[in-house]
Amino acid sequence: MLSIKDLKVSINGKKILNGFNLEVKAGEVHAIMGPNGTGKSTLASVIAGREIFEVTGGEIIYKNQNLLALAPEIRAREGIFLGFQYPVEIPGVSITNFMKTAVNEHRKYKGLAPLTATEFLALMDEKKKLVELQTKLANRSVNEGFSGGEKKKNEIFQMAMLNPDLSILDETDSGLDIDALRIVANGVNKLKTKDNASIIITHYQRLLDYIVPDFVHVMYEGRIVKSGGKELALELEEKGYDWIKKELEEKSNL
């Protein structure tokens, strides 16, 4: 589904991704872990199409297309969803209006008629339940004044509404209380099928107890330096990142 090869990205001349490689197939869950500032969110933004980052090398192939040539909205309509680490507040735009526009633009892209008001509200209701999102939030402006946890729940709600093929969840677990974590993880699990895939960026192995990954990757200084199964997350939790850094140093000293 997604194939990233030797991706190099910089911003204002500063190199952030440095030969990043990743293969994701339908049905898979990949977890990406790694120290602060190693480029995890940058990777997510570049996949979603954020234009401030400059791709200086490599390629991203998604569903056999050159993803980097597509506008962000086209990527979204082609099934890519980014759950933001820091969801953006948009005062004055209600979640309802925002989602209605998004859903109907997805439908238009697929050649489908827009949903009627009733159909749309029914869909909202169904998906709100999935993440136990309070009804009153839906009438508020997008993320405005939401608590950290509410913002993250709202991301998963949007994911449920748009039903993506590839979702990238950037630290969706941080800021969630134990119950919210369970709700969000359940939501993600319910949305999982053999045809879609997700990339879960997290700092805590706790989330991976709920959403069990097929692969765990460790990212460091702009690329993946170690990959393994879910037991790698446990090992990281126990030992931190130092042993990986040491391993790397030893390799480079050879």
Partner: peptide, 8 residues
């Protein structure tokens, strides 16, 4: 960008 990332 947030809106466009939702397909708008």
């Amino acid at each position: 960008f947030y809106m466009r990332s939702r397909g708008i």
